[in-house]
């Protein structure tokens, strides 16, 4: 646990900034809902008649006038993109930063196996992602209750669970990238998260690109699908889990044998 604690201490500022920023935006969106609720009829008509743009954000399948319809589009994007960026940043640096910042020589000459170091660093990433999601979940539920709406627990749980799984999958892939990198890899992590997000938008717009939903983890986080089906798409989640597990295994195999310069 020494390395887990050390990593958590090292990244606490970044964790609090990201959590506060995403939490603040989520709450702003929720606090806007009562004001928009009265004007929803017109807005709903407008949002559902914008062609590809409507489809891209799943607004053709959702009633934007309901709390969950509004929440899954507005808050879903904040939570999806913000959470994905945080998870990617968190994981893509965790191993490579030791070589980039030249601290690897200090860390890796202590009597701790490389496997143990990888495991503890991975645990630190997971703890941060789960802690952030729990805080955001609590803030969202609290904000919904504060604006006088009944908290739709089932839908809320499903959405937040899907986004948490998305972040873990992205983190696992970025963790793998981190094991292979020697220098800064922030750009790769953020780029990967952004590409995955846009792949889902493309998959939503055109049927010919629908297969992309099986590649990007945003595919199983589509608020419209989640709320209408009432469950996670097991196939997509399984494919995502396979990507994540493969990433973690590759990270172990690489880093255990890696020459540290």
């Amino acid at each position: 646990m020494t390395i887990v604690k050390h990593e958590l201490r090292q990244s606490k500022t970044s964790f609090f900034i990201w959590t506060a920023a995403i939490g603040f935006l989520l709450m702003v969106c929720i606090f806007l809902y009562p004001e928009m609720k009265g004007e929803m009829e017109g807005i709903n008509d407008m949002f559902s008649s914008m062609g590809s743009f409507t489809a891209a954000f799943g607004m053709d399948k959702l009633n934007f006038g309901t709390l969950m319809g509004f929440y899954s589009v507005e808050c879903g994007n904040v939570l999806g993109l913000g959470g994905a960026f945080f998870a990617a940043l968190c994981a893509v640096n965790i191993l490579s930063k030791e070589e980039r910042d030249k601290t690897a020589e200090f860390l890796l000459t202590h009597p701790v196996s490389r496997a143990r170091i990888i495991t503890e660093k991975l645990a630190a990433v997971l703890i941060q992602i789960i802690a952030m999601n729990l805080i955001l979940y609590g803030l969202s539920a609290g904000a919904i209750a504060a604006v006088g709406e009944t908290v739709p627990w089932k839908e809320l749980n499903l959405l937040h669970l899907a986004y948490c799984i998305l972040q873990i999958e992205l983190a696992a892939i970025c963790f793998c990238i981190s094991a292979f990198m020697r220098k800064g890899s922030v750009g790769i992590g953020l780029g990967l998260a952004a590409v995955m997000y846009f792949l889902n938008l493309i998959a939503n717009i055109t049927e010919t690109a629908e297969f992309l939903k099986y590649i990007t983890p945003f595919g199983y986080c589509d608020g419209a699908e989640l709320i209408t089906s009432g469950s996670l798409d097991k196939t997509m989640v399984s494919i995502g889990a396979a990507f994540g597990i493969a990433g973690v295994i590759a990270a172990y195999l690489k880093y255990i044998r890696k020459d540290i310069h």
Partner: peptide
């Protein structure tokens, strides 16, 4: 490493 103390040429810490 349990019985070895190592002093690198470049001392860098967190």
């Amino acid at each position: 490493l349990a019985d070895t103390g190592y002093l690198p040429s470049e001392a860098v810490f967190y």
